[in-house]
């Protein structure tokens, strides 16, 4: 699998992944497009540029690992893993179906490349801490990456885990906050405000960087910066757009958990330059 830091190449991969996300959710008839689309650049930066991983040594102990704590964004993870070659893209059409390897939320035992089972919000960061602590005991220099949603930070366990990561000085843990400002019931600020979110992570002992979560240059640089921090966990606070890349889905809570119908899919794919056949 090719690694690149070229923003043009990464943008092309992101475009293909967005197309797969929309197609698979449409085929499934349910799923979460909004929060999948907001996280595409973050996952592409990890899997196609920064993470030490490979389908050839998918079980090698020293690999870097990624934890999708906001498990409802499973489509972006599945599309990314398929693009990497962990399994065939033809599997994506089986999302959410009976006996599929692609459960509605990530289930590690069934899906190649999925490291940790998630879906119930607030539980991924604790598991990422456990992975990072196990790596430390084994003397591995590998990194653990974790993606959290902004609405997810309303869960108390997130802050228990935030304390743990700082207490154990987990410099090998690099987390991302997909701050797309929306959750199912509406704007995060209206449902249960989380601000000042950057200050909160700082107060919990984390190294915090605030970036545009759709700008590859900023994401790649933030990961490099985070790797330089050895005695603190890092939070890359990413401002993102829910539904990013599909004009009629952007910044709308209704696209948190709604599948596009045939017409909507056609329109979305056209915007992404997928052509009539997708």
């Amino acid at each position: 699998m090719k690694r690149t830091e070229d923003a043009g190449e990464l943008r092309e991969i992101a475009r293909r992944i967005r197309i797969e996300i929309l197609k698979m959710i449409h085929t499934a008839g349910s799923g979460h497009p909004g929060g999948s689309l907001s996280a595409v650049e973050i996952l592409v930066s990890l899997y196609f540029s920064k993470m030490n991983h490979s389908t050839k040594y998918a079980k090698r102990d020293e690999r870097d690992k990624f934890v999708l704590s906001k498990g409802h964004a499973a489509p972006v993870l599945y599309a990314t893993l398929a693009e990497c070659g962990y399994f065939s893209k033809s599997e994506l059409a089986s999302l959410r179906q009976m006996d599929s390897m692609l459960s509605g939320h990530p289930y590690a035992p069934s899906t190649p490349g999925v490291e940790i089972t998630t879906g119930s919000l607030g539980q991924g960061l604790s598991q990422a801490n456990g992975l990072a602590l196990a790596n430390r005991l084994n003397g591995y220099g590998s990194y653990v990456y974790c993606l959290l949603g902004d609405g997810e930070t309303q869960e108390g366990q997130v802050w228990e885990a935030a304390m743990t990561a700082a207490h154990y000085k987990l410099g090998s843990l690099i987390a991302f906050l997909d701050n797309n400002d929306l959750q199912i019931d509406g704007f995060v600020k209206d449902v249960m405000g989380i601000e000042p979110i950057g200050e909160k992570w700082k107060a919990f002992g984390w190294h915090v960087q605030e970036i545009d979560g759709h700008d590859f240059g900023q994401i790649l640089q933030a990961i490099e910066n985070a790797k330089m921090v050895k005695d603190q966990p890092s939070m890359v606070w990413c401002h993102t757009v829910k539904g990013k890349g599909v004009s009629f889905m952007e910044r709308l809570a209704k696209w948190h958990g709604t599948a596009p119908n045939a017409d909507e899919l056609k329109k979305a794919l056209a915007e992404l330059g997928a052509g009539g056949n997708g």
Binding site: E115, G130, L131, L133, A134, N138, A161
Partner: peptide, 9 residues
């Protein structure tokens, strides 16, 4: 949760 992460590691 951390225990589960240890086990995965």
């Amino acid at each position: 949760g951390t225990a589960a992460g240890f086990a995965a590691g």
